[in-house]
Design a protein around this nucleic acid. Structure first.
Lengths: 185, 185
DNA sequence: TGCATCATGTAATCAGTTACATGATTTT
DNA sequence: AAAATCATGTAACTGATTACATGATGCA
């Protein structure tokens, strides 16, 4: 149940409303975890009743009021406990790989455009990550004590970049393989 | 609902029992999709009642009898339909990345051993994939017509290998970053 | 005798997705 | 006037995980 923990980390980085969290899960923390607003509101409600987060009503002008959540002591403790527990190295789940193996029993060449679409999506994500890296980590910080939050966010982003580069290279490999079956062998 | 399709692909590659499928999902097709026997039996039952698979009782000596499943016409059609539908490029879900960003609010150095454990696991998986590649794809096939099943399985395996290599390199990067915070800064 | 492997299942719970629902404000 | 954005929620369903349950055979 790591959605709880992903939300706690995001709220520690910056308190915010359910809506704002949902937006962050489309970017930033969403690079490695996705969640919809329905999930987020449910979890926030549970964490609130468990005393893991505090809520504050924030009136706004020109916008509907919002509830700003921040991490409370017990939430911080729960996160700390989880951080010290070992987790299993997760296994991947690639629909596309199922399709590629399945293509052997259909027309392999028919998959080419689908793989190209995926390659395109990964190229766009890579560009997006690289732009974010240049914007947020382009300049070295004013030399002072090491900023753990910044450095660790950067390390995670570098993981996203490495992942997208690997995927693009692999999809090129797959395209070359599929190309050899053109015209239904 | 791609578990259905993953099972269909696996049964097309070779008919087998629920138990055998569960074993394959621990290796081979499990490189990119996981499923437990409970899930598999449930899906097989549903696909049987939908006429997607045929069942044959196979008596065995020295072992309990088994039910051997194979793909029927409607199952093949359902797979083909799915293969021609576009799917969304899936987003990753990395618990470890949540932990790494969360470590900024705890002791970053305390994560080092956890990251090392993950690095170890990925190193083992890589070795396992490379051994499988040498065993199954080491020698070029007797030159004849291109074997789509074999070539596409190999392409997927190369994806697994690329993924593990990328992860090991990234985890080394993360370890270097965490090391800079030793002694709780 | 006990443990591992082969073989198949049910039940309960938890997590995630999709659909539905409302309402204010701001921009086109 | 319509569409987009901000903001919060409920309900139903599907999928995945965990726990429970049984029973045969083979090996140490």
């Amino acid at each position: 149940m790591a959605l709880d923990h992903a939300i706690l980390v995001s709220l520690l980085e910056k308190p915010g409303s359910g809506y704002e969290l949902a937006r962050r899960f489309e970017r930033s923390i969403g690079y490695f975890w996705t969640a919809t607003h329905q999930q987020i509101y449910r979890v926030l409600k549970r964490m609130e009743s468990d005393g893991w987060v505090d809520v504050r009503d924030v009136p706004q002008q020109g916008r509907p009021d919002k509830k700003e959540y921040s991490v409370a002591g017990p939430g911080r403790d729960a996160l700390s406990t989880w951080l010290h527990e070992p987790i299993e190295p997760e296994s991947v789940r690639h629909d596309l790989a199922v399709k590629i193996r399945g293509a052997a029993f259909d027309d392999p060449a028919a998959l080419i455009s689908e793989v190209q679409r995926h390659r395109q999506a990964h190229t766009e994500r890579l560009a997006h990550y690289l732009a974010g890296e240049a914007r947020d980590f382009g300049e070295p910080p004013e030399s002072g004590p090491l900023d753990a939050e910044r450095e660790l966010q950067h390390a995670v982003l570098r993981g996203g970049i490495a992942y997208e580069r690997m995927m693009i290279a692999w999809l090129d490999d797959v395209l070359a393989t599929l190309g050899r079956f053109r015209a239904g062998q």
